[in-house]
């Protein structure tokens, strides 16, 4: 492709990126301040707040638990969401719109209401399995993202290619893996990424369902802010920014994800 990009567009995109990214620099600067409370601009230079966060067993446990929870939820959401999206886009089912509306409803109902309703349900069932409750709660919220993303990519699949492969003698599993999969892979990957991020960042569902032994990062951050507004909070925020950047880089490296492929 030899499309030329106008200089004006480059400037506009540059300004937008600056507006989006510039605020992320603020916690980075506050995290290196050598003061017992947050100040901006920072005074002095120290990395002790990073050391304090990384050495804190509560912070480590919350971070690892959030990773574990987000990974499980992403797996479950993809296992349920991909077949569901395929069924909804490829077949005509009775009550199809109602099913889709039901699945997407967590995006409409305030999450705090969904969370308290789930807590009430689990209490009525006598459930004490906190991890299972959190996985179910997060999956309810993440599933719509997977289904929307996968459905969109399935609708864009060129059905003529499937027909051509079948006519040329390809069995269904070959059609699925060599013709359909390359076309829907970006959509599934995007759904998985959305699911992971939504679960990792979730506060309102976790607030109702978590307990002291299963305490995700967003809840931990809130309690730390309540305890003391010192630069360790900025250090945690900075570590999360670095983690998000690392995640994007790994995905790019491992899956070869590019903007163009996602957009296709």
């Amino acid at each position: 492709m030899n499309e030329t990009v106008s200089p004006l567009l480059k400037v506009v995109v540059g300004i937008i990126l600056l507006i989006v990214v510039a605020p992320l620099v603020v916690p980075l600067l506050m995290s290196i301040s050598d003061t017992p409370f947050i100040v901006f601009p920072p005074q002095g230079f120290t990395l002790k707040w990073y050391g304090a966060v990384l050495a804190n067993p509560e912070a480590r446990a919350s971070f690892l638990f959030s990773l574990e929870l987000a990974a499980i939820v992403t797996g479950v959401s993809l296992l349920l969401g991909v077949p569901c999206a395929a069924g909804l886009t490829r077949f005509k089912l009775p009550g199809q719109d109602a099913i889709l509306g039901l699945i997407l409803s967590p995006l409409i109902v305030p999450l705090i209401v969904t969370g308290v309703a789930l807590l009430q349900l689990f209490a009525m069932l006598g459930s004490r399995a906190t991890l299972l409750q959190l996985v179910i709660g997060h999956t309810v919220v993440c599933l719509p993202y997977v289904i929307r993303s996968v459905s969109a990519s399935l609708l864009l699949v060129n059905r003529n290619l499937e027909d051509a492969a079948s006519v040329l003698g390809a069995p269904p599993h070959i059609v699925a893996t060599r013709v359909i999969w390359p076309q829907v892979r970006p959509g599934i990957l995007a759904g998985g990424i959305f699911s992971f991020i939504v679960s990792f960042d979730d506060y309102p569902i976790s607030m109702w369902l978590a307990d002291g032994n299963h305490f995700p990062v967003p809840l931990y951050l809130y309690t730390v802010i309540e305890r003391s507004f010192d630069p360790s909070i900025a250090a945690i925020a900075s570590l999360m920014i670095f983690f998000a950047l690392l995640l994007v880089l790994v995905i790019e490296k491992v899956f070869g994800l590019s903007l163009a492929r996602l957009a296709s």
Binding site: V116, A123, M124, M207, D211, G212, N213, F215
Partner: peptide, 23 residues
């Protein structure tokens, strides 16, 4: 003893939601 950190309104909400089978 498993402690769950929260705040007054949330703690009251949790008691309400689990009233039928207190947690």
């Amino acid at each position: 003893v498993t402690a769950e950190e929260g705040f007054t309104l949330a703690n009251v909400g949790k008691m309400r939601a689990t009233k039928a089978n207190p947690k």
